[in-house]
């Protein structure tokens, strides 16, 4: 495992918060994914060893919790809410607009590696539907037109993925 020193420091800090080590499993998975972009088999084994668990105890988590990815995604992850309030406001069309803009389907990474587009369930911002999360930033009222504008911004930004907003 090739984790950044900051990540390792955070991992050491988070484990003692819990009376039982196993509780640190989700925090460690988040930290590793933030660092490496996804959870490789090697990471599963590394986290298990770190917490004195069997690899299956971590594997069963990454196969259950939707936020963990087992393979690298695009440089940006676009999550379009598809649940009722957003759908009523046109989120299926929003998803179509992103798919067309990046020439890929849902749960796919665009051919240029720029983005991965996913549907997600209610993001708890139904009053400003349709909503989209791009990496860690929530975008509200994203209709087809706004989606196309965001796609242009993403392409122009190029380079490494933007840091999450503070």
């Amino acid at each position: 495992m090739n984790l950044k020193p900051e990540t390792l420091a955070k991992i050491e800090a988070v484990i003692p918060r819990y009376p039982v080590k196993r509780s640190a499993a989700l925090p460690l998975l988040h930290l590793v994914q933030e660092d490496a972009g996804y959870i490789a088999d090697e990471a599963v084994e590394w986290i298990a060893a770190k917490l004195d668990l069997q690899p299956i105890n971590i594997y069963e988590l990454v196969t259950f919790y939707p936020m963990f990815r087992r393979k690298p995604g695009g440089r940006r992850i676009i999550k379009v809410c598809r649940t009722l309030s957003c759908a009523l406001a046109g989120s299926y069309k929003t998803a179509e607009a992103f798919k067309a803009a990046f020439n890929c389907g849902l749960d796919e990474t665009s051919p240029d590696g720029e983005v991965t587009i996913e549907f997600v369930e209610c993001l708890a911002s139904c009053g400003t539907a349709p909503v989209v999360m791009i990496d860690e930033t929530l975008h509200e009222k994203v209709d087809g037109e706004r989606a196309r504008a965001l796609a242009v911004e993403i392409r122009q930004a190029g380079g490494p993925a933007s840091a999450p907003t503070a």
Binding site: V20, S23, A25, L26, L51, L61, F64, P66, M67, F68
Partner: peptide, 26 residues
């Protein structure tokens, strides 16, 4: 302490939440 979930609705159910906080499937 703040503990983050990972995208599963069933973690809102209180005993699923507790299992999740214990580091297991919820």
């Amino acid at each position: 302490f703040v503990h983050r979930g990972a995208g599963a609705y069933i973690c809102g159910e209180e005993t699923g939440l507790i299992e999740s906080l214990e580091g297991k499937r919820p």
